[in-house]
């Protein structure tokens, strides 16, 4: 890493084909970094990331692009292209990678938009959409090439309860209907536990717990307990490291 900080050490995760795998952990544990490793946006200094038998770090640019065509990713903020309308955003991967006739592109795009409930919003621009709608359009775009792996980066962040329920249901139904392998990075424990087949909790660069939702709930580790139950203080401290409170208040220096 540029900062010289080690994000992961001895991290070992196996993601099952066709299942929904949740990767959870406190903020700043490198969950997004893990997604970047899986998609070949960055490479680890040591260790391997194997996707469908391929070592991502050893692939050439073209091979990485070929691998990415089999993946879809939902970004935290949707990452829709702001100069294209909803229809063209969803059509974008098709236009870039295929030579399908216009009529077929139209049919595919409308089908995908229908699946996320936004067929009626095809002519809107990203800036006219609410946060939840934007994320659903991004989801339609992520599935338009019928990916084998679908990656969600914080899919519930900043959504109202209704949108959250919609996205949650979509993740489950897309996974089951299309037989996709889903990887969901999130810290919304309660929501994801409703749909995840297996979960990993990462903290300080390691997997501290893994298993089904029920297994995590009964996990003996205090950090898992703190995370699952949402406790403010525990192994992950509430306070950022600082000198003694009274010393700093009574002492003359503002910062240690």
């Amino acid at each position: 890493m540029d900062s010289g900080k080690t994000v992961f050490s001895a991290l070992d995760i196996e993601i099952r084909r066709g299942a929904i795998t949740a990767i959870m952990g406190p903020s700043g544990t490198g969950k997004t970094t893990l997604l970047k490793l899986i998609t070949g946006q960055i490479f680890a200094d040591r260790g391997q990331v194997i996707v469908d038998g391929l070592d991502v770090a050893r692939l050439k640019r073209k091979q990485i692009y070929a691998l990415r065509r089999r993946m879809g990713m939902l970004f935290q903020n949707g990452a829709l292209l702001t100069d294209l309308d909803v229809f063209e955003n969803v059509a974008f991967p098709l236009r870039e990678h295929t030579r399908l006739p216009e009529r077929l592109i139209r049919t595919i795009v409308l089908t995908k938009l229908h699946a996320v409930g936004l067929r009626g919003a095809a002519e809107l621009y990203p800036q006219q959409l609410s946060g939840g709608m934007g994320r659903r359009v991004a989801l339609a775009r992520a599935i338009v090439m019928d990916p084998e792996i679908l990656i969600y980066d914080e899919p519930f962040a900043g959504l109202d309860p209704i949108s959250m329920g919609v996205v949650l249901r979509l993740i489950r139904s897309l996974n089951d209907a299309l037989g996709i392998t889903s990887i969901v990075v999130t810290h919304d424990v309660r929501e994801i536990s409703q749909i995840a087949d297996q979960s990993f909790i990462i903290s300080e660069g390691k997997v501290v717990a893994s298993g089904t939702t029920a297994e995590l709930r009964d996990h003996p580790s205090p950090i898992v307990h703190q995370f699952v139950d949402g406790l403010a203080d525990g192994p992950v401290p509430f306070h950022y490291p600082a000198p003694e409170y009274h010393e700093q208040l009574l002492g003359g220096k503002v910062f240690a």
């Binding site: 998609t39 946006q41 692009y65 070929a66 990415r68 065509r69 993946m71 879809g72 990713m73 970004f75 935290q76 903020n77 990452a79 829709l80 292209l81 702001t82 974008f92 991967p93 870039e96 990678h97 991004a138 775009r141 090439m145």
Partner: peptide, 18 residues
Amino acid sequence: GLMRATDQIAAMEIMAVD
């Protein structure tokens, strides 16, 4: 710059579009 800041560039990379 805004395309970079709003992940549009990263999204293209992931969609295997250079």
